[in-house]
Amino acid sequence: MKQSQSSWKLLILAALLPILVLVAINVTGEWKNDFHPESFKRFGNAVLTSYVVMGIILIGNLFFYADSRHRPFAPFVGMIFALAVGIVIAWALISNDDLLLEANSGLRAQMLSNVVHLLVSGTAMALASLLAIGVTFAMITGRSRRVLFEEE
């Protein structure tokens, strides 16, 4: 059990380390690129937008895959409530002064911009996943099969 936990920690470290190294080089290089002032806004917008979009996708799944459960109404309402909470928080934070508003004219422009931004960054992450997972499987299938049992 302990070994399994340490492996998970190792995987999380492996995921974070390359990003942290590149960001560290970005900060300490001769160009001394300080923390970008819009980074927090981008993080906040990414959290809220991906929460809302993923919530909509999950509601769609509830609707399309609920046949075996005779389409119960309660989880549907529960998810819509969870989604509504996300939308209200996004609306409140974007409307509130300059908290999450980036270089956009207002609330509606920011929300639409967030969706397009997620579309682009999601595509980038999907392509990166295709590359990394694809190459991993290519490596695994590239080796000839080992003989597990010799016939007597």
Partner: peptide, 19 residues
């Protein structure tokens, strides 16, 4: 690069919260 790192972490956190 900063914004991309913020985007990646934010998207992962948001998707995890929704799930």
């Amino acid at each position: 690069l900063w914004l991309a790192a913020a985007d990646i972490f934010g998207t992962i956190v948001g998707i995890s919260l929704a799930i």
